[in-house]
């Protein structure tokens, strides 16, 4: 197998891998609906809507810093 063939296989495997990865990510997002912290992804929109410094964070870094 020469270098051009290796490149071609490498390119195909990488593209297929990334495409499968992206679809797996979509499947994961829509089937789980919540991230590892148990927060519904859609709630993260509130990071923009409730963004006063005194507002409660959607998912606080630590309870100590919670306002």
């Amino acid at each position: 197998m020469d270098i051009a063939q290796l490149q071609a296989y490498g390119y195909f495997i990488m593209t297929a891998g990334l495409a499968i990865g992206l679809y797996a990510y979509i499947y994961h997002l829509y089937s789980r609906r919540k991230d590892a912290d148990g927060v519904d992804y859609e709630n993260y929109s509130n990071m923009a809507l409730k963004d006063d410094i005194a507002d409660t964070p959607v998912n606080a870094t630590s309870s100590k810093k919670k306002k």
Partner: peptide, 10 residues
């Protein structure tokens, strides 16, 4: 320094 654990899409 953030108080919000997750990073907003922006």
């Amino acid at each position: 320094y953030r108080r919000e654990k997750s990073l907003y899409i922006s």
